[in-house]
Amino acid sequence: MSLAPLAGAAPQIASLVDPGALLATGGAVDGLRTAARVLAEGIGKGAVYFTIAVGLTLVFGLMGVLNFAHGAVAMVGAYLGGLVLVLVVGANTGTLATILVFFVALALVFAVTTAAGSAMEVALIRPIYDRTPTYQILLTFGVSLIIEEVARIVLTLRGIQPNPQWQAPMGTAPDVLLGRTELFGVGVRRLYLFEVAIGALVAVAVWAFLTKTLYGLYIRAGSEDTEMVQALGIDVRQAFTVVFGVGTGLAAVGGVLLMWDPIWGPSVLLSIDVLLYAFVVVIIGGLGSFTGTLVAAGIVGIADSVTTWLFTTGIVTFPGLSEVTIFLLLVVMLIIRPQGLYGVEEVGGH
């Protein structure tokens, strides 16, 4: 393959980087402060990425099922969470009450989508376990399309534009979560701190489920060797139903978390956005690995934050820098370590 076309493109790529803007970012102290802020925002984004990806990796780890409906469920979660907030929170609702409603919405959405996910596993996924993975991919992708189209129809009938963000729930975010707060001399978006707190809560809850419960033990054992778990007298099908339900519920929890985030927000397009980022995180971390998902979410979050800063400060003028960098990380990982950071070469399966 000739490299000549790339040589011709070099000046264009160089023009995307503005050295003047790089120098104008200030002295050493400012530089450190900026680095700390970018890092903090990266951790905030990482918390979001972890929350939207952990359910996907849990399901793949035990069941070997790549759930292409994961993003659609997150989208439903964002709308359902938003619906609860819009219905309950009024102009006179206080900050504490609004946050309480948020947690009630989180719990409700988790319960409803976990039940729906379990039903989906029994009715749709279970009959095709013995088929090749292509069937699972096509089926879950089909479910995703159905969910998206139903959402479009419902939202259009309710007079809500389905593709741009639905602004109403975003308006319910309490003032305390808007703006920035000083943390060790660094101004950090309060919403990121909230997202980190929720992400940490989800991580601790999933970790406790995996390490402190008998079901978690079955899942960790089943992630390595499903047949052996069955041979020890454990009904793996029942575990599959529980895990698929919990994975679905976690996807929806991710959606509720994104409801107030102006970068994401409730929209039908959230479905594909969440799915893409969730896949990037679980592939970099290693399909089926909880630790891998946690680490990869941090890496992707920080990469996103750094590249967004490079663009917003004008150092790099290419608007797609963040997405390109994240997907480049994915490509590099697939080339040098296809099983991901913490993945094993084969997991789950039947």
Partner: peptide, 23 residues
């Protein structure tokens, strides 16, 4: 069943391996 090639759950501790079986 004690399968060929052992097939212990390598990511679990010894105690956890036994706990899965003693469920």
């Amino acid at each position: 069943w004690v399968p060929e090639e052992r097939r212990v759950f390598s990511h679990l501790t010894v105690e956890e391996n036994l706990r899965v079986a003693a469920h």
